[in-house]
Amino acid sequence: MTIKEIKAELETATHPIAKSLHHGTGFKVLIMGFRKGMILQEHKAHTPSKLTVLEGTVIYKEENRVLELRQYDEVEIPLEITHSVEAMEDSLCILSQGE
């Protein structure tokens, strides 16, 4: 019910919502929900990560590149590089982290 919970919480949220979908030794999978205009502020990934858009459109920004990601697009997030994500429309993403 993780995705349904995120969608319900987004109705009144003022920031992106993230919840664990699955985790284990050395990895985790998060679902992240955004309403249009929400921004996941600049931060760094400390483990190998991949962002995949399930619904909507987001702008992924890092130091020297800006990518528009639509449904089913994905991006490998480099280690220790400052990046952010902005929702261009209501969006749902999956973030996988780990080796």
Rank of each mutant, 00 (worst) to 15 (best):
V58T: 03
H22R: 10
L54Q: 14
P48R: 04
V85Y: 07
E89K: 02
L54H: 12
F34D: 01
I3F: 04
E89N: 03
E63K: 15
Y60T: 12
L67Y: 01
M32R: 03
L40I: 00
T12V: 04
I94G: 09
G33W: 02
E55C: 05
H23G: 07
T52H: 11
T14M: 12
P16E: 02
L92T: 03
Q41P: 04
E42S: 15
P78M: 06
E89L: 00
M1P: 10
L67F: 03
R70V: 10
S91K: 00
K28W: 08
V66R: 13
M88W: 12
R65A: 07
Q41I: 07
G33L: 09
E74I: 00
R35A: 05
P16H: 08
E5A: 11
G26L: 00
H23W: 06
G26Q: 04
I39T: 12
M32I: 10
V66P: 06
E62C: 15
G37M: 00
T12H: 08
L21W: 02
I3R: 08
Y60W: 06
V53H: 11
K19D: 04
A87C: 11
I94E: 13
I59E: 14
E89G: 05
K61Y: 10
V66K: 14
M38Q: 12
A8R: 02
K36D: 06
G24C: 05
C93N: 15
G33D: 04
G98M: 07
E42H: 15
G98E: 00
L69K: 03
H43A: 07
R35D: 01
A13E: 05
K36L: 07
T82F: 11
C93F: 07
E63W: 08
S91I: 02
S96C: 05
E76G: 03
R65Q: 07
I6D: 02
P48G: 06
M32W: 02
H15E: 10
S96K: 08
I39F: 00
S49K: 01
P16N: 14
L40D: 05
I3M: 10
Q41D: 14
I3W: 01
A8H: 08
H15Q: 11
R70I: 15
K50G: 10
V29S: 14
I94M: 09
L30S: 00
M38L: 06
F34W: 00
D90E: 13
L54E: 02
L79N: 03
A18C: 12
L21R: 09
K4Y: 04
M88Y: 12
I77S: 11
S96L: 07
Q41R: 14
T25K: 12
V29D: 13
K4H: 04
E55W: 04
S84M: 11
E89T: 00
C93Y: 08
T47D: 08
H83Q: 07
E86V: 14
